[in-house]
Amino acid sequence: MSIDENTVRKVARLARLALPEERVAPMAAELNGIMAWIEQLNEVDVEGVEPMTSAVEGAGLAMREDVVTDGNDPERVLANAPKAEDGFFVVPKVVE
């Protein structure tokens, strides 16, 4: 399955990565190189195999009490914001 330039543009848009037009063709070539190498997985018989979801057998996800353990700390949450005002993140205008 080869990745054409339109697919690269579409995937870049989905990933919210601005990709300059001159990078589209080289990126398609790089991705095709990697995907061609990955294609060898098609040789493996995976009939009836359960997909692996846990690295340690029988180690289920632990449940904890449904209680508040942390929070109510807006200064620390906002400490690294590129822009913040009155306890809020300031973001570009979304609705005209």
Binding site: V44, V46, P51
Partner: peptide
């Protein structure tokens, strides 16, 4: 999904 199945084979 196929990769997660091959991963199971490796395990």
């Amino acid at each position: 999904l196929r990769a997660q199945k091959v991963r199971q084979r490796i395990a």
